[in-house]
Amino acid sequence: MSNIQCLPFLEGTKFIVVDEGVEATFAETLITGWLKMWQSKNLSNKIEMLLFSSPKHLHADQFNSMKLDNINISDFYSIKANETESIPEKLQKYLTTFPQNSIVIINCLSTLSLSVGLEKTISFVEKLKEKAGQLIGISRRDFGNLNIPKIETYGTTYLKLEQHFRIAQNNTIAYEGRYTHRKPGGGILRQSEFVTQDVTTYEITSAKISNDSSRKTKKAFSEKPKAVQTSFRIEMSDKEMEQRRNTPLPYTAAINPQKTTIYYEPEDVDDDEEEDLDGDLDI
């Protein structure tokens, strides 16, 4: 059975894109849970982590405390004072030195694109895909125009992380993951799951969200908005509508519909002189 917990082990997951938003920043937490699983399975693959959005020491300290080894971290985020190599030069150098068939994690594609541009980012990723055994890239949805277009079709597997209406229990985080996976034979696998992770062990637990149950949000549980209350009645009954239709307007008269007539009633200020009103103009 396929689920988010075992997604990296699913057949054909050559390139996984984990897409997170500002309300569901759980991509790093999820991948840490996958790292724990890889370690438990004693995989022989080297694990390479490329950092473009956070300094190396944060992850190194975390992995050491969790006793995660066999992980090489390359820091493209921190810049040393005496460093002369540009990021594109570092990327080219990395492509020639990293171990073949490694599991490569990019954190993250969005900041890489911000640093070197979209074209060079895609070129770098394509070259990595040729040499890596598996590639996992984090994408962040709220980079505006800097987002990679059509990111959901970029990899073999696209995983979108979102908030979920359920409340997480103590020492756990909860979110929803929706993934689309293109099978090697040409089929498409789509699934939505409710995911929880322990904040200490990073253990992943997930449950499938059935198609017939709508994904509710917190807003769905709020009360329906009340009708606007006014100090006067604005609706009209059927009887009042009938009276309105049958009431003649004060500025109309019963005239022959085939003839157009202008009705004029002189006022007190008008005079009845028949003289030429334009006589003083010498016309």
Rank of each mutant, 00 (worst) to 15 (best):
S2W: 01
S2A: 09
N3R: 01
C6H: 09
F9M: 07
L10V: 08
V18D: 02
D19W: 01
E20N: 08
E23P: 04
A24F: 03
E28T: 15
M37N: 10
Q39S: 09
S44A: 11
H59T: 10
H59K: 11
D61V: 09
F63R: 06
N64V: 08
N64D: 12
I71E: 02
I73L: 15
I79Q: 13
K80P: 01
E83C: 03
E83Q: 15
T84V: 10
S86V: 06
S86E: 12
E89G: 06
L91R: 02
K93W: 02
Y94L: 14
L95G: 09
T96P: 01
N101W: 03
V104E: 01
L109T: 00
L114F: 09
S123N: 14
S123H: 13
L128I: 05
Q134M: 15
Q134K: 15
Q134D: 00
D142T: 06
F143D: 15
F143T: 12
G144I: 02
N145E: 15
N145S: 15
I148Q: 04
P149R: 03
P149D: 08
I151P: 03
T156M: 07
T156P: 01
K160F: 08
Q163A: 14
Q163D: 07
A168L: 06
N170P: 08
K183M: 15
P184Q: 07
G185Q: 12
G186D: 03
I188M: 06
Q191D: 02
S192K: 03
F194L: 13
T196H: 04
D198G: 05
D198Q: 04
V199L: 15
V199S: 10
T201R: 01
K208H: 02
K208F: 05
N211P: 04
D212P: 00
D212Q: 13
T217F: 00
F221V: 01
P225V: 04
P225M: 08
T230K: 06
I234T: 13
M236V: 09
R245G: 00
T247M: 13
P248H: 08
P250V: 11
T252E: 13
A253E: 11
T261N: 07
Y264D: 04
Y264A: 06
P266E: 06
E267P: 01
D270T: 13
D270V: 11
D272I: 09
E275I: 05
L277R: 06
L277N: 00
G279S: 09
D280C: 07
L281N: 01
